[in-house]
């Protein structure tokens, strides 16, 4: 079962929910659980889970293919220029010069497809890395921690998320932490998961962004439920909305200075609070039953 944790707004507690749910399940010991941190721009989950995993990492470089122009073979016909939808190719016919603006190239392959003169070859450009780490202790063997890092300065994150997702093992529980927003990189992380846990903050900004996400998931036809984080116990606009829209509320976490402190030290709630551990296991049960329900009606 692939469970993704998402939200349009940043800082609602995606990583908190993801890492704690993961650890609660892992400590139960009945399952092999994998963790994926697909927020490759700013990956944080490792700060919370570092001590569980070996320092030794299996590094994989993520490359995209970018065109290399052979200035001798090129006839400067301009077809590639015409095919490139991103204006990434600059050509000057008189000077017989053609080059690529690296950061605009999305590696779609249109230029090499159209070139009749064999003047374009493709070379690898490194855009980031994926780290794969194994579980340290002997119990819960096979549990892996996988995160990706975008090279600073490179604009496109989707290819890294894509190649991280090839590491998913079917039939195993995987927790997938995502980047904030509703961009294509987030869709890439979400489109083939089984269930999505949205994390919302009970504030006006939180509600607005939750609605954005709900709209997107409805279009993607995904099953999802909501965790309200930092709930203050007063008039709760997010809860009201969920009732009206008939979206399952999976869990509520009250705002507590204690929790904020535990988080700020990059520690896990489930390791500091037995009650929380129970709550996160309940969350998993809820996710499971919601997912089954959805599957029954499909």
């Amino acid at each position: 079962m692939k469970i993704a944790i998402a939200s349009a707004k940043g800082g609602t507690g995606k990583t908190t929910i993801a890492t704690n749910l993961f650890e609660a399940l892992r400590l139960e010991g009945n399952f092999t659980v994998d963790f994926f941190d697909t927020n490759v721009g700013e990956p944080d989950a490792h700060l919370f889970l570092d001590n569980i995993y070996t320092e030794q990492t299996n590094k994989e470089v993520v490359n995209i293919k970018i065109p290399l122009f052979d200035k001798e073979k090129c006839t400067y016909c301009g077809k590639c220029l015409h095919y490139c939808e991103y204006d990434a190719i600059v050509m000057n016919k008189e000077d017989r010069n053609i080059y690529l603006i690296d950061n605009k190239c999305t590696s779609c392959g249109a230029c090499i497809y159209v070139c009749n003169d064999n003047a374009i070859t493709e070379i690898d450009k490194e855009i980031g890395i994926i780290n794969i780490r194994e579980n340290k202790s002997s119990d819960n063997q096979g549990s892996r921690f996988i995160d990706g890092y975008l090279n600073i300065g490179h604009p496109f994150v989707s290819p890294i998320v894509q190649s991280m997702k090839t590491k998913l093992i079917t039939g195993q529980i995987s927790i997938i932490d995502t980047a904030p927003g509703t961009s294509r990189a987030v869709v890439e992380a979400l489109y083939d998961v089984d269930y999505i846990v949205l994390v919302a903050e009970s504030s006006a900004f939180g509600l607005h962004d939750l609605q954005l996400m709900v709209k997107m998931l409805n279009e993607l036809r995904k099953g999802f439920g909501v965790v309200i984080n930092r709930y203050h116990g007063e008039h709760n606009i997010v809860q009201e909305y969920l009732e009206k829209a008939q979206i399952p509320l999976l869990m509520e976490i009250p705002f507590k200075m204690e929790y904020a402190r535990i988080y700020s030290e990059s520690e896990l709630l489930v390791n500091n609070n037995d009650d929380m551990r129970k709550k996160f296991l309940e969350l998993f049960e809820k996710i499971k039953s919601e997912y089954m329900l959805k599957a029954m009606y499909r």
Partner: peptide
Amino acid sequence: PGIGCTTISTINGIDLAVLITNSSKSSLH
């Protein structure tokens, strides 16, 4: 948020970036 294409476009040509951070290890990271 982040350091991807949206942030790169936002900071392109600006005079000053004001970074907002929180007091947590992950924010510092």
